[in-house]
Each structure stands twice: as structure tokens, then as C-alpha cells.
Amino acid sequence: MTKLVVNQLAKTYGDPAKGGVEAIREISFDVREGEFVCIVGPSGGGKTTLLRCLCALHGRSGGRIELDGRDVTQPPPEIAAVFQDYSRSLMPWYSVRRNIELPLKNTIADKKERSERVEWSLREVGLGGLGDRYPWQLSGGMQQRVAIARAIAYRPEILIMDEPFASVDAQTRAGLEDLTLAVRDDVGAAVLLVTHDIDEAVYLADRVVVLSSRPATVMEIVDIDLPRPRDQIKTKGLPRFAEYRTHVLELIRATSQPEPVSEAQQAVAATLHGN
């Protein structure tokens, strides 16, 4: 069953006639129920713009976004989000528990049920018993787990994640990736995750949507046929993993502007080559 349909979505900031910036152009893809879709693209390429459109955090310039056949104009109750900057998306004045509980106040009237949901979500992300802590008492990885707990406690049908692991170290990152996979299996929600890390995208996804550089368009949608459950060592050691990775990398490289080479760099290169 198709859950979310994005059709010819476009977004331009400002007036195009007066030097407005066209961030995304005619983007189309869909997300099926329970599917894990990753969106990769070069940095500064309009990935975040796409997600903000999907969350209805700002308007769009054209196209349609349909959730279960309904046009999305307001932030829909079926979508929860995890943002890149955990330190700016959790409320430092609330304990971890209250951070997670706040959105639930509108969806679960019964106080006992609500607190059970909070505790469940904390256990789910491995933070059981830490509900009374404050976000700033936790490490970056733990704070991001709180953000994930808040999102799954909301029981979304689609979990949207914007570069969720970009601000943590590599070790923590692998752990959070696996946590996200495990949580997805338990909750059954579809996940739409934006990343600039190609390995991460291939490792996590059922399908990878590859975006071009600005204005972002869909270059290709790659089906990732790798066995589940995935494993950081085994999956990444598969020849097929390397093939997908190389393929996506080639797409991204083709669309990225080559970095301009400065005179200083040229001088260094000349010295190294003994000229």
C-alpha cells in the first residue's frame, strides 16, 4: 500500500524573477507503508527543503503531497519528525520525560496510559530509567535517542528524519542506525530519512532516492535488495552493498560541482610532483 505520494513537488524561495532561489524542482517519489526510504544528495542541495515541505513546515511552489490520498497542507498527525540538531529540538527546561510527554497530551487523554507510553518509548531507545534526567545531562547520542523516543511515542505512520546522525561521532552513529532499524521493526512505521552519507543510506534503506544538486531533482530511485536484518559488518561486507554504494556515489559525483582548485593548492601539487 502506498502511504505517501510526492508528485512534481517544487519550491522556490523568493521571487524567481528577482533572483529567488529554486531549491527543488519537480520531485516525485512515493513511500509505501512500513517502507524505509533514504534520500541522498549533495550537501546544500535542497534535501532539508524537501523534508520541510513534507512536514508542511512551509509552503510549496508547486506539485502535490498526498498522505493516504489526502493533500497535505498542515502538519499531519501521522507524521513525526527527528531533526538534525538535537540540542535545539529538545526543551532544556523540561525533563526527558516531559519532553516526550508534551505532544502526547493532545493524543492520549488518560494520564496513566500516557506515562506508560513514555516509559515504553524510553525503553525502546535504551534509555529506560533516565526519564528524570534533563537533556543537557545526556550525551549527544543519548539526546538524539530522546528525540527518537519522542517521535515514536507519538505513534506516527511515517517517521521523518533530517540528517539525524550528522552531529554524533562514528561509533554512536552506527549504534543509532541499528537502533533506528530495530525501532522501525517494532513500531512498523515507514521511515523517510535524509542523509548525505551514502553508506548510511544504502545500509538502512529499502529504496534510495538520489537527488541532484540544486535545484534538486530526482536522478534515480535505487531499489536496495539486501537481506534483513542488516548488520554493520556482514551487510557492509556484501559485494552487492559495494555495488549499490558505488552506483549511488557515481550519481552523486556526476551531479556535484567539482571543488574549485585554488592557486595555493596548485602550487602544493606542483611541489609534490617535483617540478
Binding site: C55, A56, L57, P75, P77, I79, A80, A81, F83, S89, L102, P103, N106, R150, Y154, I160
Partner: peptide, 9 residues
Amino acid sequence: DVGQTFRLT
């Protein structure tokens, strides 16, 4: 953003 996506009143 959190306030909006989680539909806080």
C-alpha cells in the same frame, strides 16, 4: 519546528 510538527496547541 517541533511545536508545529507535533501539532502543539
